[in-house]
Design a binder for these strands. Structure first.
Lengths: 154, 154
DNA sequence: CGGCGAAAGTGGCATATGCCACTAATTGAA
DNA sequence: TTCAATTAGTGGCATATGCCACTTTCGCCG
């Protein structure tokens, strides 16, 4: 095969996804910059806001992220006073999370900025296209891709 | 408005994209684990491989990533002997990148693993759907979203 | 009731990414 | 030729994410 027919890099779903994520991430980050929040922090704060004082594990599951990663990501937000945690009443292993009043204020502030970016994106990409893209992404995120276990052994 | 009608979090294109990226990233990472490479490193190595001893700036542009981020990401690969850099003949500011023989070997090894994951993904998601998704993601990545400058001042 | 295995987090370590301030090399214009 | 503006990278600093090894709690079973 000629040099041109390698397995095809741009065919990698993951690479393509990450590339787009970097691109879009910068755009939303720029838009949110005035609030001092990164687009990831905004997303996390929003999730906490809509959740009912969610447990860390619940948030991690919803956002499909590693629990420890969530813990790390939460730190700067706690440090800056936007978020606070408290132990679950019935299960001391569980740590619940909620926004502080300042966190709520900051969220409102960020939402303003976010909606501008969101609107601009939808304008450029087409609201319908955007909706389809999100649906496709959600479908991908929820796929059960687990590689079949080599040998179920026994 | 009722609690149910907030601007809609899952409507955030960026958040949805990141969530999917985390999900898919883990899948590809798992698949590539035996090679010792992360999916991101694999993508980067592949890009270097197909490029013609590309300059760092060129790679960064292609992958839509920050130049400094690329530099950081390259370090472990250089440390492990998969990649090496050398100054451009005509412009000493430019640093070109290429795979070492070991890097080529590692790439081949990773490609085997990658194709298994890729195939599995396409099976689950549908090759056609996957192709459409990649096209949509590329379109998003290449959108010119720059926020219109507030005031061109002077 | 004692102990074992599961569940939920934490901390440490490593990579992924960005931004900013700086340095080195070039280029273009006076 | 000389110097200001531009271009390509580097290093430092901070967040984003993951995995792994533990520690603390629970839940359950004998």
């Amino acid at each position: 095969m000629t040099e041109a027919r390698k397995p095809g890099f741009s065919d990698c779903n993951n690479a393509t996804l990450r590339r787009a994520a970097r691109s879009l991430g910068r755009f939303y980050d720029d838009a949110l910059a005035p609030s001092g929040l990164k687009s990831t922090q905004f997303g996390l704060i929003f999730q906490i806001h809509v959740g009912n004082e969610p447990a860390m594990g619940t948030i991690a599951e919803t956002l499909i992220m590693d629990l420890s990663a969530l813990g790390h990501t939460l730190k700067p937000l706690i440090r800056d006073g936007y978020v606070e945690t408290f132990p679950d009443k019935d299960d001391r292993r569980v740590k619940r999370v909620r926004l502080t009043p300042q966190g709520e204020v900051k969220l409102d502030e960020a939402l303003e900025l976010w909606s501008v970016a969101q609107r601009r994106f939808e304008d450029k990409a087409g609201a319908e296209q955007a909706a389809k893209l999100r649906a496709a992404l959600d479908a991908v995120a929820d796929l059960d891709l687990e590689m079949p276990v080599a040998a179920p052994s026994k």
